[in-house]
Design a protein around this nucleic acid. Sequence first.
DNA 1: TTGAAAAACGACACTATTGTCGTTTATAAT
DNA 2: ATTATAAACGACAATAGTGTCGTTTTTCAA
Lengths: 210, 210
Amino acid sequence: MAPRVSEDYKNRKRLELLRAAKQVFMEKGYTRTTMQDILDEAGVSRGALYAYFDNIEHVYRELLRHEDEKELHFFDPDDTRTAWRQLRNWIQKQQQEIEAIEHSLLLANSEFFLSTHAQPENESRRYLTARYQRITDAIVDFIEKGTARQEFQPRLPAESIALYLVSFIDGLMLDTFHLGMEKTNVHAQIDALLFSLKEMLCPADEAKSL
Amino acid sequence: MAPRVSEDYKNRKRLELLRAAKQVFMEKGYTRTTMQDILDEAGVSRGALYAYFDNIEHVYRELLRHEDEKELHFFDPDDTRTAWRQLRNWIQKQQQEIEAIEHSLLLANSEFFLSTHAQPENESRRYLTARYQRITDAIVDFIEKGTARQEFQPRLPAESIALYLVSFIDGLMLDTFHLGMEKTNVHAQIDALLFSLKEMLCPADEAKSL
DNA sequence: TTGAAAAACGACACTATTGTCGTTTATAAT
DNA sequence: ATTATAAACGACAATAGTGTCGTTTTTCAA
């Protein structure tokens, strides 16, 4: 027999639960958030929430997936701008995210990443590994395409540059989160990053000196 | 009347408790470790442990303090080596720590840092802030001394370079912890870091190209 | 030795959270 | 309207950890 409510209804409900979850996770991070918090925020019962998600790890995993889908296409080819400009643009977006760090999922994300480390082989771990691979691959690809078009003349392997870039951003986010933007001086650090990348990539459309 | 046991006795007991705590924190991280775990590992009773520490946050804070004391003097002046060599040395030490990451306090540290973010003004937060300041100040100082001795000719402010260096190391540690050394390719990233620092600092005793 | 005081013990009351499950309510096909 | 079925509810048992405190043990000065 046909289901009693439409797929669409269930989908909307699911999204509403994820919205509530996101709200709570932004405020409290991952570790301190409970299922109770989420169901309170969503205004549903325990049973309703558990009908959609097995446990809190499951909720967070699905939220992350949902958020990632929005983000995905930043390194797609874009012929209206030079590669270097596009890269600077991405970095600027990261900077903005860092500067709005208190209203982001960064705390929750970090805690979630760390929490997965306990469990050996796990849906969440697999997803996070694939996620890292996805972003670094996209950057490598981007650098290689830029190189083929002679927009970059990299002085290090593309992979090294990509991994390096990601590590730095991750570190800056984390430190800024702990210590606040004043102490970490985000602006100065972004300058240093751009300086480094320029030396590594030798973009055609920039004078060599800062 | 004189205390029933010597200061020395209490001190040794305290250190033994911290040793046990370190063991557990290395295995389980901060979040999942309980007072029970620590008192089991130390082979003492609940009451004994609580006589020395108020709660788990207190235990961790004291452990961190104790560990930091060992580390403190890496950027002290050292006339037997060039400044650039000394810096490379420090980076090499960080690399070794990253490569032994499963047997370190990194997971626990990260979780502890994140956990403090909830509490507004707090002994642990103060300590962590001072700790960051201490390391970045030491590096700034080191760069400025090297510059005064004409061993460096920095092309960016010393503070930017110092903060940048710390962010990168923090990010690399974290990512490597999540994903393992193979995925993050620590060696390649350290190369990229050295490349960047060379461009930023222009050390006198190095050929300009890698 | 002895005994006062500190150290160590561990049972316990309390709190927080989880996931389940029997019950009630809402939905839509007939 | 009726009714089969799924969705939503929320009380509850189970689990796990915390910090306290009355009791026991150990230590060492006298």
